[in-house]
């Protein structure tokens, strides 16, 4: 899919800290490092998958890129231009190019608006079409996502989960974006419906040359849809590689454990598999371990892991790993 090497989005040392004032009498600040020094790039026309367990900062990364959250530090380069410090007005043209599909198809559509208004709203905001043109465009978008004209006047509650997700996708396409962040777009859907939505996302990518950041915790689906995959743990990106490479040759101990814990729907493989079961839980991001954040659960942890935070290294072409084991 990605045949040219033009970089559409590059994120450099992105940080997003949430500060909460805890003390009632004495001021005590609690800092949650949701995204801590994350760097990656996405080429035009490709899909980058972002996986990790809940609380690892994958959704926060997505939202910070779109500036739905203000970044604490770092740069967000869209075709080389830093958009992390633009003001609201300067940001407007970029908002048209970058869109988002949300996880929960029930909460992300306004229950009091008709489908036609939901899909039309982005066009109104960006003054793209009005009157008859607008209506035509809405019908066209509904058709693109496999719904029809009759659905335009209905309200979200009249639709099933899969259909609502299609409405959400139509809305994101309304401004003809180049880049779409899909934040767990299929996790709320049933297995038999998931494949329908994934296939549609793939078709749209091909037709419109879209670039996706696909955030999910379903590792097998991420492998299926992505060209490259990044693995996050406690706010850090531990490994990024071509998806085939990542799944066949995971280098970071966390990626290895994560991949081996996917239940495979094949009894013979399930029986034969030598599962790496991680001990313990993910530490709290308020007080993460020093050095490498994974060291508390890592079976290869060494002394250096405690003191020095590992940096991302390119171990083979396009395969980046942040682990001290790679230095040996």
């Amino acid at each position: 899919m990605a045949n040219n090497n033009e970089i559409l989005m590059e994120v450099k040392n992105l940080k997003k800290y949430f500060v909460k004032n805890k003390g009632l009498i004495q001021k005590r600040l609690e800092v949650t490092k949701a995204v801590d020094d994350v760097s990656f790039f996405i080429r035009k026309g490709e899909t980058l998958g972002l996986v990790g367990e809940s609380g690892c900062g994958k959704s926060t990364t997505g939202r910070t890129i779109l500036r739905l959250y203000e970044p604490t530090g770092g740069e967000i380069l869209y075709y080389g231009k830093d958009i992390s410090k633009l003001n609201r007005e300067q940001m407007m043209p970029y908002r048209k190019k970058m869109q988002m599909i949300f996880q929960d198809p029930y909460a992300s559509l306004n229950a009091r608006m008709t489908v036609s208004d939901i899909i039309g709203e982005p066009m109104d905001i960006h003054n793209l079409a009005s009157g008859k043109d607008r209506q035509e465009k809405i019908y066209e978008l509904l058709d693109t996502v496999g719904l029809n004209k009759d659905h335009a006047a209905r309200y979200p509650h009249e639709f099933s989960g899969g259909q609502r997700q299609r409405i959400g996708i139509a809305r994101s396409l309304a401004v003809d974006p180049e880049f779409i962040i899909c934040d767990e777009p299929i996790s709320a859907l049933d297995v038999s419906i998931q494949a329908q939505v994934v296939n549609m996302l793939e078709d749209l990518q091909e037709e419109r040359g879209l670039t996706y950041l696909f955030i999910a915790h379903d590792l097998s689906m991420v492998k299926h849809i992505s060209d490259r995959v990044g693995v996050m743990y406690l706010g850090s990106l531990v490994e990024v590689a071509n998806s085939k490479e990542l799944y066949s040759n995971p280098m970071h101990p966390y990626t290895q454990a994560l991949l081996s814990s996917i239940p495979i729907p094949d009894p013979d493989i399930a029986e034969a598999s030598n599962r790496i079961v991680l001990q313990g839980d993910v530490p709290s991001p308020v007080n993460p371990p020093s050095g490498c954040k994974f060291r508390t659960r890592c079976r290869y942890a060494m002394d250096i892991c405690k003191e020095v935070t590992p940096v991302q290294k390119e171990v083979s072409k396009d395969h980046f790993v942040a682990c001290h084991l790679m230095d040996k």
Binding site: D190, Q196, V198, N199, S220, M221, S248, L259, I264, I269
Partner: peptide
């Protein structure tokens, strides 16, 4: 058929079940 295969190497298209329950 509608779930992706983790262990296969080539990229295959998913075959969804059309319609709804």
């Amino acid at each position: 058929k509608s779930i992706p295969k983790v262990s296969s190497d080539e990229k295959q298209r998913l075959i969804p079940i059309p319609g709804t329950p």
